[in-house]
């Protein structure tokens, strides 16, 4: 073998090694971060932690029940707003590919996806907090719904566009009206893609903090009134993590762990469900 060829092969091998080393050099520490957070939090979690309210500074113990309930309410409300809205919009975009409205709507969805979450918080503040004269979980849900929307719309649109036209034609040829073609044939056939978009968007907004800072605001007490300020997991983590108290840090670790597990589970579930529900075309 000539020297030149050896040199070229050597160079190639060197690059491959570099790629592997760099990949491991970032993935392994990233993994350690995950493990660290889970470890730091898991020991703090017990029944009291889940069912009690936070104790005032100085008293140890206490739990995050208010944040758990709050997160469920805030995320649930956001989902109720955003999921039907997003799916319907995705249906419009896939059924009217070339209309002017579809062009503008698509552009706006792209814009929405790029808006920093903190800015959406500002907007929700002026749309709901100012007029109602109070921070409220509803305004937080509204902000989160706006963040969910583009994910749901896009996953719905992309899924439906992948379905073959023959499916629509089969349905139309049986004399089915438009809404039944969509709701009984098209959507069921694309359900796995739509659901995975929905679940990922839920996972995504559960961890969002910035839009809640001046909407849901946080609340040391348990409330279920959506017109009142409400605590949520990410807000609690932010507030307690930046506080100087160790007890509160412990609560924040526990909350981080729960939030993390929830997000990871949702992601894993999405993978499984997508595979299981996939309609074989």
């Amino acid at each position: 073998m000539s020297v030149a060829i050896k040199y070229r092969i050597g160079k190639s091998t060197a690059f491959k090694t570099l790629v592997i080393v760099l990949s491991l050099a970032c993935v392994v520490p990233l993994l350690f971060i995950l493990v660290y957070i889970l470890q730091a939090g898991i020991t703090k979690i017990n029944w009291n932690f889940l069912t009690n309210l936070p104790k005032p500074v100085g008293e140890s113990g206490g739990g995050i029940a208010n944040a758990l309930v709050g997160t469920m309410i805030i995320v649930g409300t956001a989902s109720i707003i955003a999921i039907p809205f997003g799916i319907l919009c995705g249906i419009y975009l896939s059924e009217n590919k070339n209309s002017k409205l579809a062009y503008w709507s698509r552009l706006c969805i792209d814009i929405l996806q790029g808006i920093p979450s903190i800015v959406i918080g500002i907007v929700a503040y002026f749309w709901l907090v100012k007029p109602l004269n109070s921070f409220s979980s509803l305004s937080g849900s509204m902000a989160l719904a706006i963040m969910m929307l583009p994910i749901v719309v896009r996953s719905t649109e992309e899924t439906l566009l992948l379905l073959p036209d023959s499916l629509r034609e089969a349905a139309y040829a049986l004399g089915m009206p438009f809404h039944r073609v969509i709701l009984k044939v098209i959507v069921p056939c694309g359900i796995s893609g739509i659901m995975s978009g929905v679940m990922l968007s839920v996972a995504r907004i559960t961890g969002e903090t910035a839009p809640l800072l001046f909407t849901a605001f946080g609340n040391p007490y348990l409330t279920t009134d959506i017109t009142k300020p409400m605590q949520s997991l990410p807000l609690l983590i932010f507030n307690y993590a930046t506080s100087p108290y160790n007890d509160w840090h412990d609560l924040a670790w526990g909350a981080s762990c729960i939030l993390l597990i929830w997000v990871l589970l949702l992601n894993i579930f999405t993978k499984l469900i997508t595979r299981k529900w996939k309609v074989q075309l």
């Binding site: 993935v27 995950l34 730091a40 990922l200």
Partner: peptide, 19 residues
């Protein structure tokens, strides 16, 4: 794994960063 790591909420990264 990479996808899971991408899903970790930023407030948790912030907390880990602080600590």
């Amino acid at each position: 794994l990479v996808e899971l790591i991408a899903a970790v909420p930023s407030v948790i990264y912030g907390f880990w960063g602080l600590a």
